[in-house]
Design a protein around this nucleic acid. Sequence first.
DNA 1: CGTCCACAGGAATGACGGGCGG
DNA 2: CCGCCCGTCATTCCTGTGGACG
Length: 415
Amino acid sequence: MSKLNTLDDVFNRFLSNTHIFADREVLRHDYIPEKLPHRDEQIHCLGGMVAPVLRGSPCSNAFIYGKTGTGKTAATKYVLNRLSLKAQELGAPVGVCYVNCRLAGTEYRVLSNLCYALGVKVPFTGLAVGEVFDRFKEGLDLQRKIFIVVLDEIDALIKARGDTLLYELTRVNETLRHGRTSIVGISNDLRFKEFLDPRVLSSLSEEEIVFRPYNATELQDILWERAQIAFSEGALLDSAVALCAALAAAEHGDARRALDLLRVAGELAEREGAAVVTEDNVRQAEKRVEHDRIVEVLENLPVHSKVVLCSVYLLGKTKVSYSITGDIYGIYCELCDQSGLSPLSQRRVSGLISELDMVGLLNARVVSMGRYGRTKKIRLGIGRSLVRKMFADNDRLRDLVGYVPNCLAEVSGKS
DNA sequence: CGTCCACAGGAATGACGGGCGG
DNA sequence: CCGCCCGTCATTCCTGTGGACG
């Protein structure tokens, strides 16, 4: 392979190599395909459940469970799209609103989304939540519609904000004279029920639909379904698709991940100027996807989290195999001093460590060391080179990775 | 078998910036 | 422009706790 010299070459090469992809868009995970293989059962179930609204009677509330990439969102959107079309055809007064609770983030924004779907104008912010809710109810009553509310990733909202919104929504029908609402909750977390008020739970779980993870063969079907549209004829090896499916199935049957792998593998092949996507491209893609994910998270970390990460990194330089909260806090304070930041409280740092653990940058485990107290054992969850690189890219913190804290010797000495 | 370490992690509270209605 | 509300991040204070040591 010859090295490319000018940008023009890059562009020309790209233009002459369009034969890998036919339609890349199809591999994006917000794309809703015409066919959803292996989800007939769930689609029929949901379809049957919402069907009564076409005759003007309200339908049950429903709860949909399943891990990420099991087709919950796609299947639900698919059914509701069809439902809307059918309703239009029949002139049935049906409204549908899809809200992703995690993206919306707060009760306020969820509600304002619902209002928007009704055509009720609300300001982006500034109103009390109760006020927005009243306007929502008012709009609903005025339009005399049956309104189906889909709350995707609802577990994220409940965990962060509690279940008040959900409680109010399940009760909204009691105060409406003309409109009716039905709620479809979608959750990634199977244990999520425990967070709910029993009253909300019973009202919401009138119907439950579970989306099992896909196995490798099912994933292959899904990939082929899309690949036929996304890739040019013969640009994709069977074995590459099989490998994508196998890798994703090994994780937890995540179709989204499988599609990502396939897309990135295709892009890699295209960049190489190859004519077909091979297993090798998929393997590269796997590394690439993971690497990109971590780098992305690292870059967007708040500065204090970065310093905490650096503290763990520095402690890792000693022969100690893990660090504990107290030692990390000591070094953290010193690093803050060094770079002119005012250190946060130990409580907060403890919280930051837990957050870093959640996103996988650290491994933290609560242990008891008997009379030597209860603490967290902490290790880096990613390659050390990644941490070094992050700091090299940051003007303010660049020196920290090379810095040798005063208390380091003391710490490594005592254990 | 009780003690007591070194924190974990919940709750209440506060500071601050942003955005709106009036 | 004021007053109000929101959401975020942080602090302070607090109670809880597994298990090695004496």
